[in-house]
């Protein structure tokens, strides 16, 4: 198949990339653009570790054709914070020991960000509901929920 070029806004920067027509957004992010924070856990839409934001909505990037990202706004974990300037969610996950092996953390944080961008004051049940598509095998979720609640509290106080 002929390769095609897609252009999208990636973490605030206009990016053009040549892709195979049937490649997933995840493959393009990880293997063409070498943004490795977005993880590959199943490729079946079952684990949530590849979650990114497309126009602010959480999307499983393994199930989305990269071609459909043309003209859209994509945000990956790299786009929300760095080790020097962590996003409040990243800082809270770190403080609460919410990352153990760390493989689900990028997807978890992006799913949480999508929630908080829409609803800055969710209760614990609403947080759990928003994360229900993201699997974690290490933590038992409690520290993850605690971390997100911390951020909600910080935002209420701010």
């Amino acid at each position: 198949m002929e390769s095609i070029t897609v252009t999208f806004k990636l973490n605030g920067k206009t990016t053009a990339v040549a892709i195979e027509p049937l490649e997933s957004l995840r493959t393009v992010l990880r293997e063409h653009l070498h943004l490795h924070a977005t993880k590959a856990g199943c490729g079946q839409g079952g684990c949530g570790s590849c979650t990114v934001l497309v126009n602010g909505e959480p999307v499983l990037s393994c199930l989305m054709l990269a071609a459909l990202a043309d003209g859209q706004e994509i945000t990956t974990l790299e786009g929300i914070g760095t080790p020097q300037h962590m996003h409040p969610l990243q800082a809270a996950f770190f403080d609460r020991f919410a990352a153990q092996c760390g493989y689900c953390s990028p997807g978890m944080i992006m799913a949480a960000k999508a929630l908080l961008d829409k609803n800055p004051h969710p209760n614990r049940a609403e947080i759990a509901e928003a994360l229900a598509g993201n699997l974690c095998r290490c933590t038992g979720y409690v520290t993850i929920l605690d971390a997100i609640e911390d951020v909600v509290t910080q935002m209420q106080e701010a």
């Binding site: 924070a37 914070g81 760095t82 080790p83 962590m86 990243q90 770190f94 919410a98 990352a99 092996c101």
Partner: peptide
């Protein structure tokens, strides 16, 4: 931990 939560 910081490497994990920032995807690094």
């Amino acid at each position: 931990g910081i490497g994990h939560v920032t995807g690094q």
